[in-house]
Design a protein around this nucleic acid. Structure first.
Lengths: 211, 211
DNA sequence: TAGATTGTTAATCGATTAACAATC
DNA sequence: TAGATTGTTAATCGATTAACAATC
């Protein structure tokens, strides 16, 4: 599959297509046209076709798209046909929320280890996974071939832990700490800054009021 | 303050400016130029100036921007000088993570009530806030002048609860459930779809591999 | 005043939408 | 075959970057 730098905007829309197609598939819908999908998702049919064509022709003229096929193809594009090994750093509520979220596992994201600074938590099990001390983190990544580190710790420790993750050979960091990590270029970072999301909402509320 | 439809992209960047300015302020930095900030944040100086000028001239030629002043101004734009009243629906791990996050409160986001379907949780207190039954939700919103409903429940219940929130007179919904809510136009929705965020990361990992 | 740096206009770049020929 | 709908090119729209005059 060739690809000449697909824009972030396109990629950001793929999971949403995937979700809608999954729902259609569950409803046993066999085919869908870009126009039907467009009405369902409130985006233009043109955008759907344009987006999908970045990855090759999944549809068929006069017919539309086969739901199950397109669902699988987008899944492959998103790498959901592969297993990813994660470690979770920070066994607080947020960490536990993620660890308990069954759907991640269903999509191939397997939490292999959980780490926390607090020794009172060590040995405790969350969904069968033991909480380990930070000292073991670097070794653990190496030994268990971990792809993704999930940072659910306060921002103070985040930078230091991100360096440990990098030393261990992680490929990507899913960062919930409210800092921008400064990692080498080949390490991928996806930030989830919840307070920034809330501030956006706050902005919108105040504007809406004025009208 | 006039404003002619400021784009979402600009607004999405404001909280990040706010964060960096807060840090500079804590370090007792008095002034900052768009170029200094640009290097710190890895964005163009041009973009910073362009963004800020949507809201009026906060800087001064030959000087730059006063950190404390700009911090406050952006805070006001984001509505952080005002109190917002929230209710949290879903007292699971994610809900508890949010309820325990002190910084929200510091920024004026006050959790007034927590609701859950599970009656075993009723009466339990999270950071001093009692968990209440869903039946009381609509009344509670009206009575306590609630702005924002936070949905930290599985997607099955989310649509129904969002309707209750709307009936109660909520202004905005911070939605962590993996569905798109279909609410009236005047209700604002900010989605946090964690699994979609993780899928983006997965996509990037698989691309990086191929090179 | 001279130097620095903003505010703002103009140029570029990229993403979205529209249109339509290709084709199932 | 005729009708439908894609794949794809072209047109539009918007966002980012560059440039520079205004001004502190």
């Amino acid at each position: 599959m060739e690809h000449k730098e697909i824009s972030k905007a396109v990629i950001a829309r793929l999971p949403r297509y995937y979700r809608y197609l999954g729902e259609l598939k569950d409803e046993k819908v066999e085919r869908v046209s870009s126009m039907e999908l467009s009405e369902l998702m409130h985006v233009t049919a043109s955008q759907i076709r344009q987006d999908l064509n970045h990855f090759g022709g999944f549809g068929q003229q006069g017919y539309g798209y086969n739901v199950a096929f397109l669902y699988d193809e987008i899944g492959k594009i998103l790498g959901l046909d592969q297993k990813h090994h994660l470690v979770l750093i920070g066994a607080g509520h947020l960490g536990q929320a993620l660890a308990n979220y069954v759907n991640f596992e269903r999509r191939g994201f397997l939490i292999k280890g959980i780490f926390d600074r607090d020794e009172k938590l060590h040995g405790m099990k969350i969904r069968g996974i033991e909480v380990r001390p930070m000292e073991e983190l670097e070794q653990f990544i190496r030994k268990h071939d971990i792809d993704i580190g999930v940072l659910t710790i306060p921002k103070n420790g985040a930078i230091e832990v991100s360096e440990t993750l990098v030393r261990g050979g992680i490929k990507a960091i899913w960062n919930f700490a409210h800092v921008d990590l400064n990692v080498p270029d080949n390490i991928l970072v996806e930030n989830v800054h919840l307070s920034e999301s809330l501030m956006k909402l706050s902005y919108m509320i105040d504007r809406a009021k004025e009208r």
